[in-house]
Design a binder for these strands. Structure first.
Length: 257
DNA sequence: ATGCCTATTTCCAATAGA
């Protein structure tokens, strides 16, 4: 099985690239984030022509997550039990069972600044996610993949001194990720196709991608059963090149059957 | 060359992203 996660930064704006990438990469399951469309605006017909079923959870202008699968898509859930809102629900998590594994696509709140109420919301959201994953993990193989908006270590940003006082690197955010791993989820390491760091995000501005000044904030967390089946995982930086890319690159994971 | 920000919207200028 091949699965992937990708923050596409608008599925409408990215549709031609998404379709080309699906055809070329041929993943069985894809977790998408920042689709930025309501459920009725998702290009289900276009991905169906490539053989994918869709579970989309969207709200329009911001956020929006989806799972595409060509190996079945059952028991779809929007959000998770106890998920906080700001103040109301936001479309940041969707899960479904595909090929014997429960996949959850997550788009963790950005947090803006450590002083902002959105930062408190981010920490609460991660804590609630951890609690909600405990029963999911007990139920069977699990993958929680997406844009976590946290760089787990100092090596996961291009220059840690630049991030002093910023979100994404603070100890409470990293502790929230560690708490999620501690219930029994492993960080599936992805190899970079170039350079020493498997960055997944590069700011559009100032040629950051071309200087490889990026961040590793998109992550794949898998249960032990899944982690034990990983035969390869890589960041597809090719998808960050060229005209009209997302600012995030996909992570592609191969599992032995 | 990979090439110097992008996507959204009842306000097309303001907001958000990280």
């Amino acid at each position: 099985m091949r699965f992937a996660t990708w923050n596409v930064n608008s599925v409408k704006a990215r549709l031609p690239r998404l379709l080309d990438w699906l055809a070329g990469t041929a993943p069985d399951v894809v977790c998408l984030q920042e689709t930025k469309v309501a459920a009725d605006g998702f290009p289900e017909k276009e991905v169906a022509e490539l053989g994918y079923g869709t579970a989309a959870y969207g709200q329009g202008r911001w956020n929006g997550v989806a799972i595409l699968s060509r190996i079945g898509l059952d028991d779809v859930r929007h959000g998770f039990a106890g998920e906080p809102g700001y103040p109301g629900p936001e479309a940041r998590a969707v899960s479904a069972r595909c090929g014997g594994i429960r996949f959850m696509s997550v788009y963790v709140p950005n947090g803006r600044t450590p002083e902002d109420p959105h930062y408190t919301y981010k920490l609460q959201w991660l804590a609630a996610l951890r609690d909600a994953l405990v029963p999911d993990l007990a139920a069977g193989p699990l993958v929680v993949a997406g844009d976590y908006n946290v760089a787990p270590t100092d090596a996961d940003v291009w220059d840690v001194t630049v991030f002093a006082g910023s979100t994404h690197v603070t100890p409470p955010e990293r502790a929230a990720l560690a708490a999620i791993r501690d219930i029994g989820l492993a960080d599936v390491p992805a190899r970079p196709l170039k350079g020493d760091h498997p960055f997944t995000y590069w700011d559009y501005r100032a040629g950051m991608f071309h200087q490889n000044k990026g961040m590793r904030i998109d992550l794949v967390y898998g249960s032990a059963e899944v982690a034990g089946r990983v035969s390869d995982a890589y960041v597809d930086r090719e998808a960050r090149k060229g005209k009209g890319p997302s600012d995030h690159a996909p992570i592609v994971v191969d599992l032995t059957d």
